[in-house]
Design a binder for these strands. Sequence first.
DNA 1: TTCGTGAGTGTTAACGTTCTCATGCCGGCC
DNA 2: GGCCGGCATGAGAACGTTAACACTCACGAA
Lengths: 350, 350
Amino acid sequence: MTADRIDAGDQPGGPPPRTRGSVMRDVARLAGVSHQTVSRVLNDHPNVRPETRDRVLAAMRALNYRRNSAARTLVTRRSRTLGLIAYETTLFGPASTLYGLEQAARAAGYFVSVASVRTLDRESVLDAVDRLCEQSVEGIVAIAPQSSVGTALAQVPAGLAVVGVGGGGEHVPTVCIDNSTGAAMATRHLLGLGHTTVQHIAGPPDWPEARDRTDGWRAALHAAGAPVPAPRPGDWSARAGYEHGRLLAADPTVTAIFCGNDQIALGALRALHEAGRRVPDEVSVVGFDDVPESSYFLPPLTTVRQDFAELGRRSLELLIEQLESGVRTNRRVSLTPRFVARTSSGPAPG
Amino acid sequence: MTADRIDAGDQPGGPPPRTRGSVMRDVARLAGVSHQTVSRVLNDHPNVRPETRDRVLAAMRALNYRRNSAARTLVTRRSRTLGLIAYETTLFGPASTLYGLEQAARAAGYFVSVASVRTLDRESVLDAVDRLCEQSVEGIVAIAPQSSVGTALAQVPAGLAVVGVGGGGEHVPTVCIDNSTGAAMATRHLLGLGHTTVQHIAGPPDWPEARDRTDGWRAALHAAGAPVPAPRPGDWSARAGYEHGRLLAADPTVTAIFCGNDQIALGALRALHEAGRRVPDEVSVVGFDDVPESSYFLPPLTTVRQDFAELGRRSLELLIEQLESGVRTNRRVSLTPRFVARTSSGPAPG
DNA sequence: TTCGTGAGTGTTAACGTTCTCATGCCGGCC
DNA sequence: GGCCGGCATGAGAACGTTAACACTCACGAA
């Protein structure tokens, strides 16, 4: 009598036909071994006779067996899942980081579960953390680079690894681009072309990335003894670049503009164009990010390239490091960006 | 004697301190009830005395209890997790869809696990499906709009809901933008402005979305009795738009170009600019997607807007519908896009 | 021979939930 | 007064896996 498991799904019209796949015991029975041996084969334990292993593998194929990760997680207390707190993932940078991270995680044998947040206030971040905890993730990566997030993350349950990408905070290990250096590169490039100073249309001041870029710009001006105009903060959008760009275009002394990102630069380019100020002959513009389109802007944009894929990879590295050592480090990995000269910047006029 | 559970993590230097959170039994003990009652409170069963419920809730708070979803999944056979097969998520469209989907999933009480694929060949799609199955997801959404994917998806294990977003295939329920209609709108707009015909720089022919747009463009030309030039396929990049744009710019009879997406349009704009052909005075250009930057192109781009967030929401809807009915439908939801007129298109010259 | 050893395998007990059933209690009805 | 039915709760068995341990051989050393 082998009718102990009637696979449902045959009685027509029954509400949920939900088929039950085969489990270890089925495989074991078919292969004529114990379920434990099946488990051993599955986990590459050494002490299994090759012949037995083959029989088991054949049975697994025959039954189209897949291991149940819930049971596995339950007993091993390892979910092999990473949580990702994502913010503004429609932007190129975060989207690329997410992609890089997922690729790296897959390579390391981890799954990735995403929790998007609409805003970065403490509450919604903690809520996202909560949702991820409920899934018993082993670690959390936060692509949510705002100062407030750092402190929120600092209090995730102990025993859970955390990494911030981008800005991060003092209390959490972080991987980021060296925004300050990147901004300094851009600024020095412009100063080197003979511009007496460089204007700056900045990103939102509550993003550490924006702040670091502003700092780098200021430091470079300072080091060169150039005057430091007030930075012009906005959001990361082309719209902000356009608005500020209009004001700057109206000022004939302005000859160089460093923008917080490429979208802002796009807006600035349009404003300059509308005002009849030629780029780069009259005004030079430099962006930040090197989005794929930036080499097709009018004119092609000089910018600072971030390697987002690498960012994803490194943050995973940091996470796994914590996972394996069991210690929450406070390490801060910084990636140096690369300056990319195109045609939107040129010698100072006159 | 209550030393039956020594929480590890105190002996200094021990390799993995991995703290064990509290479980139902702990809560039960503290509240002076059975674990079953705790479960009832957790799942909002009606038959619990309010007083008892409060005691349990207090205990949960005191112990900072969170339910273990692995155990829950194991016994209920419901993971409350959706798998997402993502392709090219650094592009604006897919990234936005992903975001919309995650938001919708969260609202419906589902988690989202992502599997990116680098290429869309059958093997890597099936591999992604496999990884998701291993996590026992309840359904799979594929933002992977290429013909080949449809057939690959058709053979995911029965009892698993599947939805394709974008192109999809015959064998899988699909949510997509009505690309054909959108393209026709754009084409009719240009014809209405007096252009005798409309050139088309298309997306990759193996993307159904690209094909549908090309079809819509062709149909509109046909309906108007306009000549139908050969479409010019490329990838989705600004580079492709630029290359084709250069060729088109050299042809003085060309006065209107419909581009497969906004990036292509950006490249085309640059090519026209370099060739000294003014937009829209001499040549009109229309894109597709309405990426946030497109209103800051030079000139601001006339385009067709897709509501990606809605796309995400609807695909979730379709998935849940299958999940609850237990039947794999073959429904095809089509969202009508919106035409957005800006300044890159104008009356035909002469 | 006798025992230890180690490779190959099986048995049993977790893991933390939810589900099914059993129990005690209270009020109302015949 | 005994019986029934609903409420509030508890006891125990799943779920499918891995970990810990026990067992059986075959083989070689004492």
